[in-house]
Design a protein around this nucleic acid. Sequence first.
DNA 1: TCATTAATGTGTT
DNA 2: AACACATTAATGA
Length: 232
Amino acid sequence: MTEPLVHDKLWYLSQINVLEALPKPSLEEIERLAPMHTAPKGKLILSPENRPDILYLLKRGRVRLYKVGPNGKQFTLGILGGGNIFGEIEAFSAVTRDVYAEAMDDTLICALRRSDLEQILAAQPQLALKMLQALGERLREAEDFLQMLATSDVRSRLLYLLSKLAEQFGVVRGNMVHLDLDLTHQELANMIGSTRETVTATLSALSREGVVRTGRRSIEINREAAARFWKE
DNA sequence: TCATTAATGTGTT
DNA sequence: AACACATTAATGA
């Protein structure tokens, strides 16, 4: 078994927007304290060498979180969309994780220093609750995904991944959901612990069955097929 | 446009 | 799944 450890293949999404449903005053407080900056496509926002004690709020664009294995291969932990937070693990715990965060497109990001964050959380307990909720949700999704990785074949893992991506980033087009991401087969493989070739072959099969439609760096998944995984 | 590189498709082990 | 190789699409000088 030359497979890497299952937990190294863990991929999860977070769809929690911690900022939603916050009272306006606290939002304004956050805006005031968090300098906003842009990170162009491809920019490394976080790396093991550069880990400021900062909580990032992603306002626009997408950020990919990944690790680099001993073999030098990247493993994608997750893709964050607008409204998500990252860097929070480091801000809340002493644990250092060797995670990279890279802007997938031109992004707009707020950076909150730890001291400011603590101040805001003290004044806005709702936000603290929201963040706990977000972390809990991520953990739950991670557990679901771990189970999927351990018990399913590549076809099921791929379908699960695509449905989750569709849930978060999908744009409905008729009876298909278009994934507005710009992912290569290699990147998909990185997310489900498979190989580029297998993903290509599996996608072709699914395409023949009409479950997905593929183009270069573009994927659409049948709505019903995707929705089958969007339980509850 | 042409040449180079990146992404994808496929067969073999 | 890994590898080699073919084909095709994107990129950019």
